[in-house]
Design a protein around this nucleic acid. Sequence first.
DNA 1: GCTAACTTGTGAAGAAATTCACAAGCCGCG
DNA 2: CGCGGCTTGTGAATTTCTTCACAAGTTAGC
Lengths: 209, 209
Amino acid sequence: MKRIAESTIRRLSLYLRFLEEFEARGLATISSDELAARGGTTSAQVRKDLSFFGSFGKRGLGYSVPELASRLRKILGLEREWRVIIIGAGKIGAALAQYHGFAERGFRITAIYDNDPLKIGRNVDGLTIRALECLPTDRESAEADIAVIAVPARAAQSTADMVVEAGIHAIMSFAPRRLAVPEDVTVKMVNMAMELEGLSFALTNRESA
Amino acid sequence: MKRIAESTIRRLSLYLRFLEEFEARGLATISSDELAARGGTTSAQVRKDLSFFGSFGKRGLGYSVPELASRLRKILGLEREWRVIIIGAGKIGAALAQYHGFAERGFRITAIYDNDPLKIGRNVDGLTIRALECLPTDRESAEADIAVIAVPARAAQSTADMVVEAGIHAIMSFAPRRLAVPEDVTVKMVNMAMELEGLSFALTNRESA
DNA sequence: GCTAACTTGTGAAGAAATTCACAAGCCGCG
DNA sequence: CGCGGCTTGTGAATTTCTTCACAAGTTAGC
C-alpha cells in the first residue's frame, strides 16, 4: 500500500464527523460535493482521499451515509478501543485526564504518571497519579496503545525513550521538539501555543491591520 | 509579499523555541544545521523558511541566536500582548482558561463566555463566566484580538458570526467543521480527538501490528 | 595575505499534494 | 427501453512544498 498523506487522514477524520451527523439525522446518502462543502475542501479532494482506500460510492447517486461512515471507522481503526496513558500530571496532563471527550471516541485513559512526589498518589478524575518509575513494570503501561507526553520539554526525550521501551508505538507529544524514536513508532506533535502564534502571525501581517 | 505557507510559520514558531533555549544557555550563534536537527527537518528547509523574510545569517558563521530570536518574534508578531477571549466554558474552555502557559507566551485571556445560566457568574481562575449575549457589548470582546471557540459543533457557526461581528479577526476553533467567515478573518481548527485518530490509523496500518 | 574549513542564500530540480476534466455508471421518467 | 441529469473514480495537468547543489561570503590559523 502506498504511503498515505497525513493531510488525507486528517480529512477522513473530519468527513467521518460529518457523516455521523448525517447518520444521526437519518440521511441515507451524501455526495462528495456536500461533504466537501462542510469540510471546506473540494469534491475532487474528497473523492481522491477516498480513492486511496477503495471505491465506496455509486455514480449518479453518491455515498451511502452509514456504509461510508463504517468504512471510515474501519480505515481509521476506530472499531476498537484504544488504551491511553498520560505522562505528566501538570496543567495539560491533568486537563486531558479530566476531559471525557476522548473516551467517547474510543480512547480510554488507563493511567497517569508523574515524577513529582507531591503529585504521586493524588487523584485525578478517578485515576491515581503514579510514580513515573513504575511505568516500566505497570500492567497498564504494558497494555497501553498510545502515550501522551505532557512533561516539560527537557524531559520529553527521556520520557519518549521510556515509552518506546515499554512497547508503545504511538505518541502524542505536547513538547515542542522532535523526538527521536524508532521508525515503527508514530509521533504526533501538538502545541496550542504554536497554533496561537500562527494566528498572531496572520494578525500581524494582514493587508490592512 | 508572497503568501507564506502555514507549514513555514509552524516551523518558525518551533525554531523560535529552540533559539530561546540556546539564548537561555548563553550560546551566541547557531547554524541552520543545528536548528534543523532539533526540529526534525533539513538545513535547507530552515534557510528557505527564513529566506522568505530576509537574510539574517552570516555565511561561514551561522545565525546570531539573540538576533534571530528577536527577528522571529517580530515576524510572528510576538512583541506585543494579544488579548484572547474564550467562548464556551465547558471542559475545553475551562481547561484553557486555567492553563497559564498561554499568558507566558503573550496571550492573555481577558474574558470567558457561556450561554448556560448555571455557569454564568461562576469563577474560573479569576475570570467570571459571562453571558454570551453580553459579548456584543462588552469592552473585553471589542478589544480582543483572538477568539477561542470551544462550544458544541452545532453552535460553532453562529458563535463565529458573533465573533466576526465583534470585529475580531482571528479564531481558534475546537469544533470539527469549517467555519464560514470573511476572508480577512483567519481561522485555525484544533482538534485533539482528530490527532488521536491519526495515531489510531497509524497503529492500525503498521506493517507488522 | 593566503588557504582551508564552514555556512549562508537561492535558483533549479524534484517530489508531493491538489485540482481539472472527462469517461463511465446509475437512476428516474416517459 | 432510451434519454437526460447526476455523480463517481481517476489519469493528467497544475500548483505547492521540499530538497539539491553550488556560488558567494566569513573566519581562523599561520
